[in-house]
């Protein structure tokens, strides 16, 4: 089948991907990582991308999040094609539109929890960066730890800081790459609860990559990738 996963066309589309192809040169041949993938995700929906290692999940996430560019095909956010934007215009676009939660937290070790959360706000020249960041950390239950550096925080706490950073700039879409991959089961569950709660409260669209089928099952929809193609999908569109 042509790897597509079509959502309800009448709803407001947050992300649309059309015939995405991503290939990289490997010696004298080309390795196709993603092959002709199309999908749509509506505003406020949650989508899980699952698949075995090397199936192309993270590559797809990178393309959807505008961190990487497809060899062919296009990605649009809220109806605006981002694949054709210049590097800097795309960066600017990311500033107000998307947030990220990474498996390895990606906090800057030299900065405090507060400064890490402030960073995207400051890059977007938000004058209320400190107040917003403080507020978000308190919401994450980290009010007492805002001046701590990442190495002084547990894995779960670090991921909560990362979540605060992702939501602080009020993005409309949040991308999460294996958000529980580096955490034990209990902490992972806590983080998942938190993310879904925030997603509901903020009305954001959540796209996450995971190995965890239980986590995937909690999403509105999930798609399964194998060898760069969408091989199955489930859940309501």
């Amino acid at each position: 089948m042509n790897a597509t996963s079509e959502p309800n066309t009448n709803a407001n589309v947050a992300i649309a991907a059309d015939k995405l192809v991503r290939a990289v040169p490997l010696g004298d041949r080309t390795l196709t990582i993603l092959d002709d993938v199309s999908l749509r995700v509506n505003d406020g929906q949650t989508l899980a991308i699952v698949g075995a290692s090397g199936s192309g999940k993270t590559t797809l996430l990178g393309l959807l999040a505008g961190l990487d560019r497809p060899n062919s095909g296009s990605v649009s956010w809220h109806g605006e094609t981002i694949s054709t934007l210049s590097e800097d215009a795309l960066a600017k676009k990311r500033q107000g539109t998307v947030g990220f939660v990474f498996q390895s937290f990606q906090l800057l070790p030299a900065l405090t929890a507060l400064e890490n959360v402030m960073l995207p706000l400051e890059l977007a020249s938000n004058p209320d960066a400190e107040a917003l960041a403080t507020d978000w950390l308190k919401r994450m239950g980290l009010g007492e730890r805002i001046d701590h550096q990442p190495r002084q925080l547990s894995g779960g706490e670090q991921q909560r800081v990362a979540i605060a950073r992702a939501f602080a700039a009020s993005p409309s879409i949040v991308f999460a790459d294996e958000p529980t991959g580096n955490l034990d089961t209990d902490t992972g569950n806590e983080i998942v609860e938190l993310m879904f709660k925030l997603n509901r409260d903020q009305g954001t669209t959540l796209i996450l990559v995971t190995h965890d089928l239980e986590l995937a099952a909690r999403c509105d929809r999930f798609i399964r990738l194998a060898r760069g193609k969408v091989v199955s999908e489930s859940g309501a569109a």
Binding site: E87, D88, A91, Q95, G96, Q106, L108
Partner: peptide, 16 residues
């Protein structure tokens, strides 16, 4: 390098 990557991910352009 990690800081630069994060800057770019969080929406900072090359110039910035």
């Amino acid at each position: 390098l990690d800081t630069a990557t994060l800057f770019r991910t969080l929406g900072a352009g090359r110039r910035q």
